[in-house]
Amino acid sequence: MEDLLTQRLVLHPLTVEEAQFLTREEQGEHSQWAPGYPAAADIAGARRYVETCAAEGDPQPFGAWEIRRREDFEAIGGLGFHGPPDEDGAVTIGYGLVPVAQGRGYATEALRGLLRFARAHGVRQVRGDTDRGNTASQRVMAAAGMKPVGEDERLKYYAVRWPDTMDGQRTRGRREAG
């Protein structure tokens, strides 16, 4: 799998070995990690990816990805799919940034890149959710083109859906995501 490039970011699909490294208790210092990386959510996503690979095989390209800045290649967070598309062509996504990288538009840029990637790979719907009080994440999903589709006492749910084209072929996107 190749990295996806956005204007300021590299979206790097994790290998099983990279994900296993993130899940280790003793990782040591890593020169290309921003302070706070990997966060608990990054470790949980890497662990889920490793477990999925062991149980069902590698779901890439619908697995875990690392968000890196292009300027210094420093890892600032993670994003990815919670598995391959279901029978309806839908996937669920998650994302997060370390605190030092928040508030700069990186999450929106990364999510837009992942949405373009999903669409280019035949996905018809992308779903996500966030805590009701997490207005920053709600703004990220809205800015990336996802719409609110529901809520419960704990979460707000978002989705974006793309129709098939007239001839039944799904729309394909560019490799470079913006």
Rank of each mutant, 00 (worst) to 15 (best):
E25I: 07
A90M: 07
M1E: 09
G94P: 00
E17V: 10
R47N: 06
D58L: 05
D88V: 07
K147S: 10
V91K: 03
M166G: 04
V126T: 15
G173T: 15
T171R: 11
Y37S: 09
G63A: 03
E2A: 12
H82A: 09
H82V: 01
Q27E: 03
E109F: 04
A143G: 00
T130Q: 07
V50R: 09
D42Q: 05
P148H: 01
G128E: 08
P84I: 07
F21R: 15
E25G: 08
E151Q: 15
T108A: 01
H82N: 12
Y95Q: 10
R112H: 01
Y49S: 12
A55R: 15
R24K: 15
Q138P: 02
D129F: 02
V16S: 03
G105N: 00
P148N: 04
E153V: 09
G78M: 09
R132G: 11
E71K: 12
T15D: 05
I76A: 04
A101V: 00
E51P: 08
E2P: 12
E153W: 07
T165M: 14
R119Y: 07
A118N: 03
V50W: 08
A46M: 08
E26M: 05
I43G: 05
M141Y: 01
G168E: 07
F117H: 12
I67E: 05
A107V: 00
I76P: 05
R70C: 04
V50F: 09
Y158E: 09
L5M: 11
R70M: 10
F81D: 08
W162A: 01
D72W: 03
H30F: 10
Q125D: 03
G105W: 01
L11S: 03
Q125R: 15
Q138A: 15
T23N: 08
R119F: 06
E66Y: 00
G57I: 14
A55I: 04
D3F: 08
T165W: 03
A107M: 00
A136E: 00
R104D: 01
T171M: 14
A39W: 06
R132H: 02
H82L: 11
P59I: 09
A46H: 10
R175K: 12
R175P: 03
W33E: 11
Q169N: 14
G133L: 03
P84A: 15
P59N: 13
S31H: 12
D58R: 04
T135V: 13
G168V: 10
E87R: 13
H82C: 08
G78P: 00
R8G: 06
V98I: 07
V98W: 05
A120V: 02
R47M: 11
M166V: 12
F117W: 09
A39E: 10
A39D: 13
G78T: 11
F62G: 05
